Structure formats: C-alpha cells, structure tokens
Computed example of a mutant assay.
Amino acid sequence: MNTIEKQKLSVLIITLNEELYIKSLLKDLDFADEIIVIDSYSNDKTTAIVESFKNVKLIQNTFEDFTTQRNFALEKASNNWILFIDADEKLSPELKSEIINTINNPNPASAYLVYRTFMFKNTKLRFSGWQTDKIFRLFDKLKCKYTTEKLVHEKLEIKGEIAVLKNKLIHYSYTNFDDYKAKMKRYGMLKAREKFKKGHQPSFIMMLLHPIYTFLYQFIIRLGFLDHTNGIIICYLNAYSVFIRYKELKKITSSRI
C-alpha cells in the first residue's frame, strides 16, 4: 500500500524593526516545520525576541530591495513549500488548516494567492483600494522565483498552475500615521530605483498629476470615501508614495549626470 509523504513547510519572514508584531506572529506558527527570519539589522528588540524562540532560525542580511531579500530567504529554506509572511500579518486557524491541507493535496497548484484584510489600527478598512488586495504567499519554490525587474511589490515568476486560497490573511499594516508614512516613503524610493533601472526619465508633469490621480482614483473610484477619515488618510499616504517615487527619480537622475 502506497502512502503519500507529508509535505514540509518553511515559513519565511523578512524583518526590520518589527518588535510590535513579531512575537505574536512567531507564537502563531506552531504548524510550520521550519521558520526562518531574515532581518535587516533591526535596531529595536526584534532580534532579541526572535532569538528567544528556539525553533526559529535568525539570519541577518543587509537589505538592498525586497526582491533580493526574498530570493536570499528562498536559498536558506530547507523545504520546497514556502509560506512568506510579513511580521504584521496574522493567520486565522482556518487559514492555517487550509495551508496544510493544500500542500498535502495530491495535485496542488504551483502557487497560491491569498486575499488580505487590511486593518487600520484595530478597524477593518473596507474600501480605499484594499477590498481586492491579494498577494502570492504560498508556493513551491521549485516552480517559482522572484524576478529582478521589480524591487518592491515583487513579481513572482511561476511555472504551472495558480490558485487562490479561500481564507484571508489579516494585515495589521497601519499602526500610526508616522510609521505608515515612513513605509510609503521607503516604497516610493524603491520604486524610483526600479524606474531608473528601466531607463525612465523624471517628469514634473507626472510628479504633479500622478499623485493626484492616485488619490482621486482610490478615494472616489475605489470608494475610499466610504472609509471616512481613515480612507482620506490611506489614500493620501498612497498618493504621497507616488510623489516620492518621482521626486527620488529626479534626484537619482540628477546625481548621475
């Protein structure tokens, strides 16, 4: 009688100053066969918290961009099945069960998209462009890799079938205005580097109009106004990130002349 070998799962987490969430997340990963944290030399209590978990492997690696860091993490994973999760994300018991059942399915897909519920502090953000937010989190690393064309909002190159998990991740991305603004600034600067690599030139018109378009699209078309004050804040900060993208692109381009 043939038995199907149980598939093992590696959970990979990229961190930088995540002391607020990392302990809660690591406690919740009891279903994982391997947990690896790739830390970008945090200067808060993140590494101390991670090191207090004997079942977690901590590796520090200088951050260049998200794609490079994720591919570095993949190289360190012992198992083929990968669950990438951010420190500010939380898995429900239903999602954990679904992940285990999925990777042990006789005919799994190569990669799975997961929908996310965006939490604004402790309140669910229902609109503002986040109502359809989904991301690749679970995949077979033998059939997937992150391409180098994107430095932020990484692109996963997949050989084979793509499917979607039924249960959602809970995303506690917004804790306060200053932290989220710093995050959006960081994303904008990485997008600028990405555009520079592709040969894009800075444009004053785009620096002016693209952030305005982003705000209006998310606030009106994507129903951000239904999130009231929270919607205004999120739509503004996303537009701010776009502004930083063009401002930084201009700075990079000028420095190379």
Rank of each mutant, 00 (worst) to 15 (best):
K155N: 09
N55Y: 03
L83F: 10
T46H: 08
E161I: 15
K150D: 10
D140C: 10
L226E: 04
A239L: 01
N2F: 15
S203Y: 09
N71D: 03
G160W: 05
T46S: 07
I22Y: 09
S110F: 10
F139H: 02
S255G: 08
S97D: 06
E19H: 09
K90F: 15
I85R: 02
L125F: 03
K134V: 04
M1K: 09
I99R: 04
S10C: 12
N79F: 13
K191A: 06
I13F: 02
L16F: 14
G188A: 05
A192M: 07
C235L: 06
G188N: 06
D65Q: 15
T214A: 01
A32W: 06
C235F: 02
Y236C: 02
S97F: 02
N104Y: 07
M1W: 09
E157Q: 14
S24C: 11
L151C: 11
P106D: 06
V152R: 09
N55L: 03
Y180F: 15
L142M: 10
K96R: 12
L29E: 11
E94C: 10
N61F: 11
Y240T: 00
R222E: 15
M184V: 03
G224E: 15
W81Q: 09
M207P: 01
S128R: 02
T68W: 00
V242E: 05
F139Q: 04
N79W: 02
T67M: 04
Y41M: 05
V242M: 04
F196L: 06
Q69E: 12
K159Q: 12
G199M: 01
E157M: 13
R222Q: 15
N104I: 15
Y112G: 04
E149W: 03
A111S: 12
I205V: 06
I212N: 06
S173A: 15
A239Q: 03
E157R: 10
Y41T: 10
A48Q: 11
R186T: 15
D65W: 08
K90W: 12
L58M: 02
V56L: 13
G199H: 06
I232Y: 00
I38M: 03
F215H: 09
D33R: 11
F53Q: 06
C235Q: 05
D227T: 07
I220G: 06
E64V: 00
L125M: 15
Y180D: 00
N71W: 01
A48T: 12
C235D: 02
S97E: 10
S42K: 07
H200I: 04
F196D: 09
L113A: 04
L12V: 12
I162E: 01
R222S: 12
T46I: 11
K195R: 13
K8C: 08
E154M: 03
L209A: 14
T117R: 00
L165C: 10
P211R: 00
K150Y: 05
T47Q: 12
L26D: 01
I35W: 01
L169H: 11
P93Q: 05
V164I: 13
A109Q: 10
A192P: 00
L249T: 08
Y112T: 05
Q218T: 10
E94Q: 08
